[in-house]
């Protein structure tokens, strides 16, 4: 049985279920308790679990991430709420030097089972410091796992897996998708890490999208199908670990691929996936793997400018057409 649920509610349910199941799970962050976060994702949890397990912190991101690392090392499973993904820069030492490396540096003795949930996504008219998609930054660091839910269904299943994982996991939710609904099973389920989902089958081109870019890819695929181009859409669901097999298998079938992620294009997630496809499927490719990401500028405020910086279904469809018709023209 399943029902339509918002992404926000799905995250809330996942956390509540895990907190009921495991008394060592707790929440920590700014305005997580009575306020339930500015996005209201955590509403109601403090009423059920109390302020001992839903802990409001001061505005001290490095401090409370560091505290979560120490708590995780000593027998609890903290879920840290980082209000905006843009604040990752503030916590880099605690996340990347401490949480990510502790298990390795200790030779496998001190693991850090914590979840850092945060968000990403532009076009909320929030300007350059509240709109970034910084998943590449953390996916670059060995020792961290990175999940990117693309719907309420993924958000719930991936969150539950993250909470049970014995390693630090960073989850990026798209802040524009909190009210988006999707069918979510009534009964309990988990989504394993490292298993991509084929969201639409097709034979001519593979569109690989992360998070909200799955919707961009699906819309592009819909437009293309009207023209007789059949696009396969794949959601990797986790960047680390990455389900290379499913991506490679699809590209071997379609011979073409476009990768879409909302982080900046340069040195980003899309480049990594494109490189892996080149390494594993080069002789199956009929065209170069293309990348779509956020334009490589700080995210501007003005709607007239901001809308130019994000990948659109139209742009992806157009690129897919040129690839499928063999029209990609390289500058001499």
């Amino acid at each position: 049985m399943s029902r339509e649920t918002t992404l926000s509610k799905a995250v809330n349910e996942a956390i509540a279920e895990e907190m009921r199941r495991d008394p060592t799970v707790f929440l920590l962050g700014e305005d997580v308790a009575e306020a339930g976060t500015p996005f209201k994702v955590l509403s109601g949890l403090v009423e059920e679990f109390g302020t001992g397990r839903v802990i409001d912190t001061p505005i001290s991101e490095p401090g409370f991430v560091g505290i979560a690392v120490g708590a995780a090392m000593t027998g609890t499973r903290p879920i840290v709420d980082l209000m905006f993904g843009d604040f990752l820069y503030l916590v880099m030492d605690q996340l990347c030097n401490q949480a990510a490396k502790s298990y390795y540096m200790s030779g496998g003795k001190l693991n850090v089972p914590m979840v850092l949930r945060t968000n990403m996504g532009a076009t909320r008219r929030s300007a350059a410091q509240h709109s970034q998609s910084l998943q590449a930054l953390v996916a670059h660091i060995p020792g961290l796992k990175v999940a990117m839910p693309s719907s309420a269904y993924e958000a719930k299943g991936l969150m539950k897996t993250a909470i049970r994982d014995d390693n630090p996991v960073v989850i990026f939710e798209d802040k524009l998708m909190y009210q988006d609904k999707a069918p979510v099973p009534e009964e309990e389920y988990l989504i394993p890490f490292g298993e991509a989902a084929i969201k639409r089958e097709g034979g001519d081109i593979t569109l690989i999208g992360t998070s909200s870019m799955v919707q961009v890819a699906l819309k592009a695929a819909e437009a293309l199908s009207a023209e007789g181009i059949s696009a396969e859409v794949i959601d990797p669901r986790t960047l680390v670990p990455l389900d290379e097999e499913t991506l490679v298998r699809s590209v071997k079938k379609t011979s073409r691929a476009i990768v879409i992620d909302e982080g900046h294009r340069n040195y980003g997630v899309t480049g990594e996936i494109a490189a892996r496809l080149n390494e594993r499927a080069f002789y199956h490719l009929d065209a170069p793997v293309l990348r779509f990401g956020a334009m490589d500028v700080p995210v501007p405020f003005s709607p007239a400018l901001e809308d130019l910086t994000v990948p659109t279904p139209e742009a992806v469809a157009q690129a897919a057409r040129t690839l499928c018709r063999g029209e990609l023209i390289h500058a001499a």
């Binding site: 707790f26 560091g66 979560a68 120490g70």
Partner: peptide
Amino acid sequence: GGSMGIATGAALTAKLR
């Protein structure tokens, strides 16, 4: 200074548990 959060977090575990 990198372990100041970790020590404080260990104390939080002690309190919570």
